[in-house]
Amino acid sequence: MKLKINKSVLILAISSFIAVIIIMTKPSLAPSQIEPFVPIIRVIESNPMPVRLKVNTQGTIQPRTETMLVPEVSGNVVWISDNLVAGGFFQENEPLLEIDDRDYIDAVEMAKANVYRAEAENEYAKFELERLEELINRELISLSELERGVRAARVSEASLNNAILSLERSERDLERTKILAPFSGLVKNKQIDLGQFITRGVPIANIYSDDYVEVNLPIADQQLAYLNLPITQRGELLDGDAPNVTLFSNYGGKKYEWIGKLVRTEAEIDIRSRMVQTVARIYNNYSNNDYLAPPIGLFVQAEIEGLLVDNIVTIPRSALRGENLVLVVDQEERLYQREVSILRLYGDDVFISGGLNQGELICISPIQTFIDGMKVKTIIEENYGTY
């Protein structure tokens, strides 16, 4: 029993001795200072420059003039132009349709006969009046007979004028049996055919001009400041004041582009949407098929050229913190918050009109935790905001 106790004590002593040696011989750790973490951020250089403001909108192409083709006389249709079909193209004063003119030719001949008769009666009445005036001077007739002669002369003259007017009207009706195009354009649709009887005043076709087309472009009232269009504008804008408009559309699987002018604003503001209706005009260039105006009814996107504003810094919208704050890096590569003046938010860009100086570095990287004056390393992004 005593021998077992001595062995336990010996083992404990040996273990304690080994532990003391390990503690005494352990390596000592030299104290070291931890270097702070410096984030790497992307920056752009502030470069104030002139920026052309733009306003984006959309609309549907409409014809400049659209009218109904209406006959001024009645009759049977004896001839129709091949161009008087839906989509047909015609020139100004081109014959489109002819009405049976036989009755109108007879009416002209009858009116001419009436004129000849009225001329003969008027000549006789004037001759008779001259004779009565000679007789009254010689006191061979009474005054009442002279008065009857004057009355007969005036009635015959009125009858002659009436016959002449009837002849002119008959000649106009004869001319109206041939319906001519009032302008160059296209046929939208027609409602008549060969041999059909048409009635005066009843539309037979819808046509529209194609020298230029127009498109109504709604603009929010606050965006008018970018175009400098006065609210009191009346009539069309002067050429020097009319902004350029670029229209875009995908048609038939291809992208098309047209250049036009903003020519006027409509007289009222929409009370529901608070939008101002502006009108852009695009001319047809017949000498070049690549520059023809867009077709009627096409839906287009529009970009209106606005004012040219100086000293504008353009940054990505992601660089904006809150409503009007950005992060700026100083010469010691420390990050600070700066309040700026924002002119406009446009797409993915922010136009800044004040608060930044030439050459300052603006942080465009997302930073979750920001401490004013924190140390950073920068990577400069080139050529941002060069419009």
Rank of each mutant, 00 (worst) to 15 (best):
A118D: 01
S32R: 06
E332K: 14
S318D: 13
D270F: 09
Q331C: 05
Q337T: 15
Y283H: 10
S159F: 03
I312S: 03
I282L: 05
G355K: 06
T177G: 04
I14F: 09
V276T: 03
L237C: 08
L292K: 14
M68R: 15
A205G: 10
G354V: 06
D193H: 14
E45S: 12
P182Y: 00
V43S: 00
M68D: 13
N114R: 08
G149F: 05
S81A: 07
A280L: 03
Y384S: 03
T278K: 01
G75T: 15
P182K: 00
I312D: 01
L129P: 01
I99W: 02
T199N: 09
M275W: 07
R338T: 15
L180M: 14
D372Q: 10
D106A: 13
V108S: 00
N285I: 05
N357Q: 14
E121K: 12
L143I: 11
A302Y: 03
Q222G: 04
V329D: 00
L224W: 02
R64P: 08
L237N: 02
I207V: 14
V85H: 07
E134T: 08
V187N: 02
E382R: 14
N93M: 13
R154C: 04
L247C: 12
R176D: 11
A13M: 14
L217S: 05
V340T: 08
E171V: 14
S46K: 04
L227R: 03
D349L: 05
S74R: 08
N83Y: 12
N244L: 11
E45Y: 13
S353H: 06
E92Q: 14
E94S: 07
Q191H: 14
D372C: 12
P230T: 15
D211F: 01
F183I: 04
I364A: 04
A293P: 01
N311D: 09
N47R: 07
I34K: 13
N285T: 05
N83D: 13
G252S: 06
A19W: 08
K254T: 15
I371E: 01
Q301S: 15
E168W: 11
Y387V: 08
S287D: 09
D211E: 10
N189S: 13
Q223A: 12
M49I: 15
L343K: 07
Q277Y: 01
R344E: 07
A30R: 12
W258T: 02
E214P: 03
G75N: 07
A280I: 00
I367Q: 01
L69Q: 04
S318M: 07
I44T: 01
E119G: 07
W79D: 06
F17L: 10
T67K: 01
V376I: 11
N189R: 09
R154K: 15
D348L: 08
S81E: 09
E266S: 02
S341I: 02
E360A: 09
Q223P: 02
L143H: 06
E72F: 00
K112W: 05
V215Y: 00
L229C: 04
K54N: 15
I342Q: 06
M275P: 04
I352R: 05
D193F: 13
V77F: 06
V108P: 03
R52I: 14
S46I: 10
N47D: 10
Q277W: 00
V155H: 03
F299M: 08
L84T: 09
F127Q: 09
L292A: 05
S184H: 09
